[in-house]
Design a binder for these strands. Structure first.
Lengths: 347, 347
DNA sequence: CTGAAAGCGCTAACAC
DNA sequence: GTGTTAGCGCTTTCAG
């Protein structure tokens, strides 16, 4: 695995010698960092191609103190949600001639500590993450280390010094609730992925609740299903099973995300609650799978590829402070897991 | 974005001064690369912690000629298939204290050329890919550059100098065909993702065909549906629609992968071919979505996380030549998209 | 067991 | 326009 000291690789001196110029000149033409005569330029490029020279970015990075590499930190690379986000980052990175490193730091694992240390050691220029996957001590360390930090949908509040990209859940959840209300639903439950944690006014849950009151509806405590233990359908299923048993008066269920909604769909099937005739289910994210469930899932779509692209651009943005912060705008995709509420439910 | 030259960062000299030793000694205790007296060791560690020292991997890499970084190259990061693979790689990498870079190189795009160049410039120690996403000129360049190369399911033949991890489709496709045959199917079609390209004896298609003949069945030419244009359900749907129209005698359809199978399922629905009563569908991969389709998809599962882990280990393996090459073993997951063949179909 | 010193390959002053 | 040269922060002989 260990490569012998680049031995054999042609380096800048070799090109310089071949072209009959100095290394400085070679550097200048390669990076077009200072004017060089046309003739010399040509000779250098010829030498570069002839020798098959490839610049050594490691040396360059050491010298410049910038690695042209950004890292993406997510909770679970296997979560289908993240692949699109990373894709968007990678696409934008490719255009900006940056490389992207991925790493996972499962919440409440001290591996996170090590991951962050590694990233810092590797001197990545920036770090992008979606949601919390770091405890505040890690985060503070990052901030104080001076890496450029960017978090999407950071909760409950982003640390000072980190840029954020927020998702407009205010509008999004209004759409969700309006949709449900227009179908006659009044008893709308929420499938949440945590128990009691504080939520920022930009969070999914907060905005949902807000949208409910704007429609004159209240979210009763017993209508909150709690799915803790990971973003997995099974968890959502268990919580929904419990909810349906406990509060059969509910006619619609809004889910914190699609992964949980998938479980909700199965729970409904298991409980003999046909969707959408007896229970409407709506998710958030619009993961790939959402189109293929039975019935296909109505969901608040988050443009994740676009978010990734935006995240990278916003991270790169020099004078972000004086610019309006960009937002990610979700939109409701109505499929077939939502329908008219049963008449008798309108108690 | 550009970080000023690490200014302010504490470096090895600082630690050395603080501990009253030389940088050489600091290096030795940090890397435990040579015996150091217990007392000195202790002093060094104290200084390290006290100053919050973090080693600069860039400098280390330059000096050592190894970056402790591997790259993963895939065709499309958005393809749900790859996330698990990358996850496996990342997990193993974390244990081996390696970092992983991701990049995409869409086939037949000259961006690939640039990507490869970038990777080479960044001096990654190894490169892992699944399937072809590079043309042979790129590949040759990689091989000759001396990067450690590892490809999973490389087709039609891996270039000399690259290690490979193969998937045991021979056994896998036998399972698929046996399953179908045991359900009474004789007219089994194949939904392929390419037209005419040569296939290695280890490929999905080749093994399928082989398994068919072992059961005394032949795959008629008109039973091959061709889904070219990308691994997307829509493509699979179109090809299947066409097949069903052209060869209604078919009672089962084996798909090159789940993404295409998803499309096949929809095509069947559109054509009024109930699955599995009128048409059995089987996929390959067992992507996340497969569990949630209606009916849930029977598929040949590829343990992708495991494959990722294995890929990294095998890439790291020093004396791979004298060791037996590891294989990935798929297994059939029978769900509900396959069922008994219609009697009248047994012509 | 420990220190001094020579680079790893490149860039960026600074001269000319 | 071009060349010289001093490092970037670390590892690693080579002496002691």
């Amino acid at each position: 695995m260990r490569r012998p000291n680049d031995r054999g690789k042609v380096k800048m001196v070799d090109v310089a010698r071949e072209a009959g110029v100095s290394v400085a000149t070679v550097s200048r033409v390669i990076n077009s960092t200072a004017p060089v005569s046309e003739d010399t330029t040509k000779r250098v490029w010829t030498a570069v191609r002839g020798l098959g020279y490839e610049i050594n970015h490691v040396a360059k990075s050491l010298r410049q103190g910038a690695t042209h590499t950004v890292a993406v930190l997510v909770g679970d690379l296997g979560n289908p949600f993240y692949s699109d986000f990373i894709k968007g980052i990678e696409m934008a990175a490719q255009r900006a001639r940056l490389s992207v490193m991925v790493c996972t730091a499962p919440a409440e694992d001290d591996a996170a500590q090590r991951q962050v240390q590694m990233l810092l050691s590797k001197r990545v220029d920036g770090l992008i993450m979606w949601g919390w996957c770091l405890d505040s001590s890690c985060l503070d360390r990052l901030v104080s280390s001076g890496v450029h930090l960017l978090g999407v949908e950071l909760q409950p509040h982003p640390p000072a010094g980190a840029r954020t990209l927020s998702v407009d859940f205010r509008t999004g959840m209004q759409d969700v609730v309006s949709h449900l209300v227009s179908l006659g639903h009044r008893h709308i439950a929420y499938l949440w992925d945590r128990r009691d944690e504080p939520t920022s006014p930009e969070s999914r849950f907060y905005c949902f609740r807000e949208a409910m009151s704007e429609h004159g509806l209240t979210l009763k405590d017993e209508w909150i299903a709690v799915a803790t233990g990971g973003q997995r359908p099974e968890i959502g299923q268990a919580a929904t099973l419990d909810l349906l048993h406990r509060a059969p008066e509910v006619t619609a269920l809004a889910c914190h995300n699609d992964l949980l909604a998938l479980g909700a769909l199965q729970a409904a099937k298991l409980s003999g609650f046909p969707v959408p005739e007896r229970l409407s289910v709506v998710g958030v994210d619009d993961i790939f799978t959402a189109r293929f469930t039975e019935p296909p899932l109505t969901t608040l779509a988050l443009p994740r590829v676009e978010a990734g692209r935006l995240a990278l651009q916003w991270l790169l943005q020099e004078d972000a402070e004086r610019l309006p912060a960009p937002q990610i705008t979700p939109h409701l995709v109505v499929r077939h897991s939502t329908g008219r509420a049963r008449i008798e439910a309108n108690a």
